[in-house]
Write a protein that binds this DNA or RNA. Sequence first.
DNA 1: TAGTGAACCTAA
DNA 2: TCAGTTAGGTTCACTA
Length: 906
Amino acid sequence: MDHKRRNGGPYKGGASQAKRGKTTGEWEDSPSQFEEELSMFDEAEMEAEEMEGQAGHDVIPVGDLFSADLNPRWRRPIAPSLDPLSDTLVFQQIDLDYYLVAGMPGQLQEKVPIIRMFGVTDSGNSVCCHIHGFAPYFYVPAPSGFTSDDLGEFKRELNSVVLKDMRSNKDNISVTVLAVDITRKESMYGYHGKRSLDFLRITMAMPRLIAPAKRVLEQGFKFGHFPINGYQSYEANIDFEIRFMVDSDVVGCCWIELPKNKYRVSLCQYEVDVGWTDFISHPAEGDWQRIAPLRVLSFDIECAGRKGIFPEADKDPVIQIASMVQRQGETEPFIRTVFTLQSCASIVGSQILCFTQEKQLLQSWAEFLRTVDPDIITGYNIQNFDFPYLLNRATVLKANLFSHLGRVRNMKSVLRDQNFQSKQMGRRENKITNIEGRVQFDLLQVLLRDYKLRSYTLNAVSFHFLQEQKEDVQHSIITDLQNGNEQTRRRLAVYCLKDAYLPLRLLQKLMCVINYMEMARVTGVPLTYLLSRGQQIKVVSQLLRQAMKQDLVMPVVKPEGGEDYTGATVIEPEKGYYSVPIATLDFSSLYPSIMMAHNLCYTTLLQKEDFIKTPTGDTFVKSSVRKGLLPEILENLLSARKRAKTELKKETDPFKRQVLDGRQLALKISANSVYGFTGAQVGKLPCLEISQSVTGFGRQMIEQTKQLVESKYTISNGYQADAKVIYGDTDSVMVKLGVATVREAMDIGTKAAEWISSHFTPPIKLEFEKVYYPYLLINKKRYAGLYFSASADMHEKMDCKGIETVRRDNCPLVANLINTCLQRILIDRDPQGAVAHAKEVISDLLCNRIDISQLVITKELTRTAQEYAGKQAHVELAERTRSLCWRTPFPSTHNTTWSSSCPSPC
DNA sequence: TAGTGAACCTAA
DNA sequence: TCAGTTAGGTTCACTA
């Protein structure tokens, strides 16, 4: 049966045909820009492929006839057959997890963990690799007098205590402790003369047995003739995946090679088994920095909600699912489909599959997803909306074939709740859907983590980054469009497609995949950790890797809040307006360089005796005695960053440039988060001696810098004027050098930075960064100025710090007003113009010429009137506006839509 | 009406 | 079972 209808011909014919099919309605007079974009894909593909019936814009009334072979593009390329005896298998690993299985050789009764890596080959074939033979373990110090003769007794007793400790033993476990070995290790916390001691390495049968074993050992454990003892445990709080990766030198998203003869093909296309010591992990360098042609699927669903009620999965049906699939590195999606409930008119450049039953639609879409087999799934708020909605809906409809979304056979995707709390991000409730082997890359989550925005709606975000917006369909009319005809449903489908397309575009524009991969490679954690976990795990991963080389082990510390420590100095500002150039000198990577310069580390901290004293009185050994792990990590990060930047300068290939830029960025961020890790009191390994010493050095340095610059650049030393530090914060000083031109300020600033640097221990370095001219210093952490750095002739931007223009808790009217005033003052050098503008806006406000329904008028506006409106106007305006200060309910940051542009003065 | 503390957001 | 740091400005509700 021919159930395909091809709208043949090139774009023009297709479009006109689509138009002819339309009925009346104001929105239908011409295809939207997005529709034209879609049709361009079609045209390009027709030329490239000269294939019939594939690139097309089909409408397929599917009914019960859905088949994964409806479109040959959906499937991955056919996998060339693999002979383990003669072929190596090389793939980029993108995610890994583990599962438990019984009946492995040597462990017939007990379950053992098996690491499972998912990845993609250069030719775009997907790989599932089972890695055998790696077991979880942790350490405790051996009690004094312990010898290898005691190992058996220790192991037996620990095993029995752990078994007893288990409340229920539903798996019928009889062996919990697999092995106990004596090994020479040293605690990484504190310097103790490089004395390695006997540690017991305790290997457990399963990851989840580590915690009870640790607990019984800590609480007081007795075995043989040894007295009862509370054991301090080491590395008992390391995620199993991280443990494996650290021990086998695997970093996130690295390339894995399975040598011939070392693996066996077990099931389907490239599902392989290998021993954990048999594979090769390639460091992400040179050619191994490349990225496999990953398949990225973006999707969006539409629901037919009831009027004014947010759709509920137990009542409101899913009516459309749009999907777009793109290969990483390519610029356009090669699959564009919409699954619709009921008929839908064709859309040039996309394939439409129409269903009569919602259950069929859902199950077919899941089948489509399995066929496409994406490595990365993206979309907007898919984590907390689309996936939960689809899964709940599938349950309601008893669509049992739906919920197998991962790459593991017989593994259902289920929902669970996660509560996440941190000082950095506040409380966050999230829903988690397990989809084994596919990385869920919800663009909303990426944006919430990485960008501070006024609004996080897809529309606002798309406008902000792409200057593009969603198709114009109000939520309230979705149900009406669905209940209309195939033309109204077509309009909905275009809208839905665009909502699937925009996340893909944003992902590309923001280079999320590349940047996150580089972060995973640099820090060593799996890609998924970067979106699901905090900052600490990245440092832990690096710390463990560095420590392992020196047989150092990481203690488990119990979280304990305590007194805060002193942070950085903010120099009291000499507030005012400066119509002369102000040079800014910055210490580059201040905290990392302090830690390197002074060898600050867990491993170098002296808890008693004498040695280097930090400003806070803490003591660390010099690097000649023992070089710290943290300085080593930081040196690696910063030198790798330098290399990346050098390579970046040489590289001409735009794609490789992106990778390198992502890399240097990840390296910088990683270096800066090491300090925060040591200061995180409720963290994996806090050490306030380190963090307070770092800030202590910082305070000394900023003070010394101020004194140096003010003592050298004086009239008595032959300079034009006495230099004056008018402000400084943490790692920077703003200096009024008393010169008239930006050029002079740059020259002196550069020389001063170099000279001052020579007073500090390398790699500490003060750099000339920029000149502000003019400069408006309002208060601590609040200033604005024209920014000169590359050229002395042209300012690059108006730099505003801490002022309302950059804060998200003001309405845009305030931000815009102040921004314009600052432009008048700094760029036009016309304070009267600022006054005039402020007056105008405020009087518009007073005369109700501005729609105030969405604005929040704060005292800041009044103050602005006072500050910028000059002497006479000041009193008058301030008084008139004060009475008008009121507050409309102020929505929280999330889901806030300000009117996209501020009403301009009328 | 001045002082205080919480909430929020930003600088670094 | 998980969470990077401190400094500091502004607004606003509350209190004596």
